[in-house]
């Protein structure tokens, strides 16, 4: 009898607590509704409105029919993919180096990694223009010391876009990667070498697998952010690298075609969500591994 009374008392208490917690989240839920769900819903609605003002699939059909749209999507994926790969190639050794430094030195170096975060995106992008253009610092310097005979095209093309993108995206890769590397106890590496593993062997069998969750998380952030990136490819791509976001902008600014722009936005959103969904299945596997720490 006693236990029954307690049980019902406890469960109603738990219910009250759940309701209270739900209440606490309501402001956040409302903000998200207002700034996310409503505009995205509106976008969604607009994408199904044709140029004559009636409901139609015209905006989506245009995407399928036109070769230029296909090329834009391919470019977008290409740029995002290459940016991610380059970020991994540059960021992994850097994060590894940082994670092995003593705390004080690591903090100073981390500041250097984060510094670009606090500078305006636009400023950083134009700074690359100054460095990379035909009469820019880099070309002139290379010619001065006789490395080149005439300036090379470093900007207003894919190369320039990638240089800028990688620079801007690198911290997004390094931060999660660094923290997952920091969580790897040095005793694990010691144990591995104690059991007979050479330093290289210990790295590949112990350190690298344990850093993978951080690497996946960082790479995913970089890839997804790159998909919708606008400023850097617009400035450094010089019109030769057209990404989805740029097409959306020109649809609105040049052609005042909200329907077409919305449809592009919806497709980009759906693709991004799809990638996140697939990636989350992979990441699940790895969080189990990471729990072992």
């Amino acid at each position: 009898m006693m236990t029954m009374i307690n049980a019902s008392g406890l469960s109603s208490d738990a219910r009250r607590e759940r309701i209270a917690l739900l209440g606490l989240t309501s402001p956040a839920v409302m903000v998200v509704m207002l700034v996310m769900v409503v505009p995205v819903g509106w976008l969604f609605y607009l994408s199904f409105i044709g140029s004559d003002g009636t409901v139609s699939m015209e905006n989506y059909r245009r995407m399928l029919d036109s070769r230029s749209y296909t090329r834009i999507f391919v470019t977008t994926f290409q740029v995002s993919m290459l940016t991610t790969v380059l970020c991994i190639l540059i960021g992994y050794p850097l994060a590894y180096f940082l994670s092995q430094l003593p705390a004080r030195a690591a903090n100073i170096c981390m500041l250097a990694v984060l510094l670009p975060f606090w500078t305006s995106l636009l400023v950083r992008t134009y700074a690359w223009l100054v460095l990379l253009q035909r009469q820019g610092i880099l070309n002139r310097w290379a010619i001065d010391i006789g490395l080149l005979d005439e300036p090379v095209q470093l900007v207003h093309n894919m190369t320039g876009t990638l240089i800028g993108m990688v620079h801007i995206m690198l911290p997004f890769l390094i931060l999660p990667l660094y923290s997952s590397m920091k969580a790897i106890s040095p005793d694990l590496m010691r144990a591995s070498s104690n059991l007979g593993a050479s330093p290289a062997r210990a790295f590949w069998t112990i350190f690298f697998p344990l850093s993978l969750p951080g690497l996946f998380a960082g790479a995913l952030i970089v890839f997804v952010l790159s998909l919708g990136f606008f400023v850097t490819p617009a400035v450094l791509g010089g019109g030769r690298v057209v990404m989805v976001s740029m097409q959306i902008a020109s649809n609105i600014e040049l052609f005042f075609n909200w329907g077409a722009a919305s449809a592009l936005g919806v497709v980009l959103l759906v693709l991004t969500l799809g990638i996140l969904f697939v990636a989350s299945r992979f990441l699940k596997l790895d969080t189990i591994v990471a729990k072992g720490h």
């Binding site: 106890s185 005793d187 694990l188 010691r190 144990a191 591995s192 104690n194 059991l195 007979g196 112990i206 697998p209 344990l210 591994v289 990471a290 729990k291 072992g292 720490h293």
Partner: peptide
């Protein structure tokens, strides 16, 4: 070629 049991086990979590 020395075997060692670490104070904090140091087992490989993965």
């Amino acid at each position: 070629g020395v075997g060692m049991v670490f104070q904090n086990y140091a087992l490989f979590p993965h």
